[in-house]
Nucleic acid binder design. Structure first.
Lengths: 168, 168, 168, 168
DNA sequence: CATGAATGAGCATTCATTCAT
DNA sequence: CATGAATGAATGCTCATTCAT
């Protein structure tokens, strides 16, 4: 497992190194988890950004981000689970702040124009970013409960997202 | 702290009882946490339901729920933090299922009519409930970061929520 | 279970009294166990003594004791198990000493004459008593392993016993 | 103490290692106790076997085993006490089975011929092995009570043993 | 006397971290 | 730098014992 619960010995074994080696590179387990969190976030950001249709209209551009986000989670359930656990782990606050800064900077560049032009409801970028995450969470939770139908819930999530961020 | 991370000895001390006393009432720590989760959820549900304006239009009725939800969290930050941690704790699944059932049944009664009449976008009740929760999370996270301005973010959250659940 | 491992709460429940009541009658668990040990030993001694054929020859008299002993164990496996556990429990030494005194006094009366007349090999009564116990243990262990055949092993045990205590 | 009653922290302290170190080598306390039991049994078997006079007559050969057994116990009272406690501990059954198999295989080789030739009364090897053990127990118990005189009781024990296993 | 809720010392076990090699 | 054996503080849990009712 990639989560907090994994012991350092387990992590070391999975990584194919000795237990002590971990502490050559990370001063503590929390530092290791911080780095893991940052890596996961970077991995996700790269995925979202790749092939971003800069020239499309705002709805299509957001739909692109949404679809990529759903795909990434569908393909990397264990990474998502790890992120979910790390997100509520208090001892890596600094890493979370940095990760959010980076995510926001990324998205900021993509939508600055839209916010100014009124194509999106006025709102903080961080709020918008979290909204996407939260809705994606829901999509997968609902899917897990029903035992399938990801497409259906993905569409539902998109509608909620677009309704929430677009102007009336 | 009221969260998972708290050791039994810490919980006992906070509760003003001996460590062993905990296990007189709960067979295990997980059972204790399950009960805590159910209690917190019930506490919240009662708050939301109190004074519900059954006769108002759907938007006003939802705004009531939203405002109550924000108020509850503002007044009980430690309860909210506990719920957040418990929500990602896997060993109390059964308790979570029951809690959700109860929440959904509650809300179901309130909005069944609206879903049928088209006053709300068609969507699972569970989805809608989680959406409210998720948005409330965001409101407080943003507030915490900015160091205040709850009113502002509460309004922003409400707009996103209403945009997400009402028909276009 | 009647053994040491049983908790006081379990013992109390089995006895149909409240947990606290135990300590009205016994100052501590060890005292309770001591009394249990003495009671078990007395129970056994009574069984052995009942119907003792005082007038028979020494071999028949011992065979009587042996058969009774085997029967008691066969009928009361849980009592025997309790005694076995108590026998290696260090904190009830005093009770064990007393129990042995009583057992020996009993047997002493039965065989004093035989030891003096040379009908039995010269040996301490305690030794002889323990020999019977030890051989009975063996009989049941072997039987348990083989899954039956108590008669067979009982006969084997008797032969060993008689060989061990009778003069050459 | 080397027995079951000893806590892991006590065992660790006696062994001169940290508490955690114990669990590097043994998955659980029961595994530790199992290994301890096997080691003790092996230690004893080696002692008994060393210098066994294969060519002597059956009585002398058995007397050799008996004397060695008494000597081992006299020299290693704490080992004997540990074995006595472990013998009634149910959670190491597998270890006990293996230990007995090994002991019996050992003795079997020594006396197979004698059983067949009628130089020994017909009986299971396990029975015979336990008989020796039980008698040795008695010898030491009696000695402990009287405060000495091991020689005297050892002789008495031997006579009982030989009477019990040799043909009439 | 009888009760049983409350206690807290004690237990086996885990695991992040250290350090001699 | 890399290793992995050793560490010991911390954890969830048990249970003999106490004591107010």
């Amino acid at each position: 497992m990639l989560g907090i619960a994994a012991s350092t010995s387990r992590i070391a074994k999975d990584a194919g190194v000795a237990e002590g080696t971990l502490f050559v590179y990370f001063a503590s387990k929390d530092e290791l988890l911080s780095q893991l969190y940052l890596d996961l976030k970077t991995d996700l950001r790269i995925t979202l950004t790749a092939g971003y249709p800069s020239r499309a209209n705002v709805e299509d551009r957001f739909r692109h981000l949404w679809i990529r986000l759903i795909e990434w989670r569908a393909k990397n359930p264990e990474k998502r689970e790890a992120m979910r656990q790390l997100a509520v782990y208090e001892k890596i606050t600094e890493a979370k702040r940095r990760a959010e800064d980076e995510t926001c900077t990324d998205i900021q560049g993509m939508i600055e124009q839209d916010l100014r032009s009124g194509a999106l409801r006025e709102q903080p970028v961080a709020f918008l970013a979290r909204l996407m995450e939260g809705l994606a969470d829901m999509v997968f939770e609902m899917t897990a409960k029903d035992g399938g139908r990801l497409d259906e819930y993905s569409r539902l999530g998109w509608e909620a997202l677009w309704g929430a961020i677009s102007p009336r």
